[in-house]
Amino acid sequence: MKQLLLRWRLGISSLICLHVAVLAAGFLGPYDPTDQNRASALQPPTRIRFIDDQRKFHARPFVTSPGDARRYPLRFIVAGSKYRWLGGPSSRIHLFGVDEPGRIFLLGTDEFGRDQLSRMLWGGQVSLATGWLAALLALSLGLSLGLVAGFFGGWREALVMRGAELFLALPWLYLLLAVRAFLPLSLSPWTTALAIALVIGFIGWARPARLVRGVVLSAKERDYVYASRGFGASSWHLIAKHCLPETYGVMATQAALLVPQFILAEVTLSFVGLGVGDPAVSWGSLLAPIRQIAIIGSSWWMILPALLVIWTAWCFSLLGDNESIDG
């Protein structure tokens, strides 16, 4: 039991760190994610050095550029490119950086010379937001339909359950890709992200609905529901006051499962080029260059976004109830 709590705490704190970092993408990332610089294309992660070419030690770490003997000391709280906090107030302050024309690419650059660290942070905003939004939609839909199906029974229940069966039998990835493809490609990035979230969430309502219905079926047979009926309570009252609280547990577990699944759906879409387009960046579009063998061969750091996705998925899995499977 203690181990379970520890796992859960670890998962939650890691996820909070991740989300905070992603939200602070502009501050934490030294560069604009769309800043192209052909001269710095496909550069490996910049080495942070303490000892210069003359074997002299410097307390303040520095970086050097290829073909340039100058040292560029690492500075903290620097002014740099302009960015917006969540589309609101703008700022120029970054956590760290080096003086021009030095460059610090902690995680290397891509084929257009864009800083991977900044792109990973900003990309997180799109991927995470889409996952959460889609999960919100799927859970809301699933909750409403499950409540109606479980409480009222009859044709409503039959309709919802048959529909759920249909949606669960769908090869959802295929359908997701197909529907996305037929949406116009010329939407603005955030509209696209919203549309993607809507589609993903719409396809994913079935499992929560089935679970909620199960909970409601047993909840409505309780004596206290009959007692309330006896007082003359409306169906709405019975559902809201007595059935709904019983669903919270199920909804929480489903959320822990669906959010990472949907984040991954967005990553997959972007990976095959059907997600948000340039100039917006998502974890999927960061992974896309991997499909080129040449890039793998020459630039190992391009796989790093994969590790970020893995870590996110792993953190969410810590929240889940998977001990019960092991028995």
Binding site: L264, V267, I290, I296, I310, S317
Partner: peptide
């Protein structure tokens, strides 16, 4: 450890 590993990423890693 592995059950949470997404297929997409696994494929990329193996390819890598």
């Amino acid at each position: 450890a592995l059950v949470a590993l997404p297929d997409l990423v696994l494929a990329c890693l193996v390819l890598f």
